[in-house]
């Protein structure tokens, strides 16, 4: 059988913030880059995100966070990913992320950070690079 793998990515908006333009345009860009994008919709709990990621057997969870709560959310989600057998999947985060928080996010275990203003090309390359 011919193997035909694709990068599968869950684009999710954790928490209560509803600014979803960024998540939506990135989902469209990743689709056009040949990835399979699962879109969770708004107002997701971390449990919902984890379960969706498990069932969809994704390679990447891409969070979009504008509320400023990226550090606690990523910390918690990383722990849940380890606990729920998603250690193989990568966590990426985009949205309103101040520069000084990027090293902190990396330390937590976030594989890639795409602050607002990152070009589609850089996001696509950044995700592809995680699987080279």
């Amino acid at each position: 059988m011919e193997t035909k793998s694709k990068i599968r990515i869950l684009i999710a908006k954790p928490g209560l913030d509803g600014h979803d333009k960024g998540a939506k345009v990135v989902a469209l860009a990743l689709r056009d880059a040949g990835m399979e994008v699962i879109y969770s919709g708004l107002h997701q709990t971390l449990d919902q995100i984890i379960q969706s990621a498990v069932q969809e057997s994704v390679d990447v969870i891409g969070l979009s966070i504008m509320s400023g709560a990226h550090l606690p959310i990523c910390q918690k989600l990383m722990a849940m990913m380890r606990e729920k057998g998603l250690a193989h999947a990568k966590l990426t985060v985009g949205g309103v992320i101040p520069h000084q928080d990027i090293p902190k996010l990396k330390e937590i275990g976030v594989a890639a950070v795409f602050p607002g203003g990152t070009s589609f090309e850089d996001i696509i390359n950044g995700i592809n690079r995680l699987f080279e």
């Binding site: 689709r31 056009d32 040949g34 399979e36 994008v37 699962i38 879109y39 969770s40 969809e56």
Partner: peptide
């Protein structure tokens, strides 16, 4: 070859 899989959106 890409896709947005959004059916799950309504069952979330």
């Amino acid at each position: 070859g890409g896709a947005i899989l959004g059916d799950r959106l309504r069952m979330q």
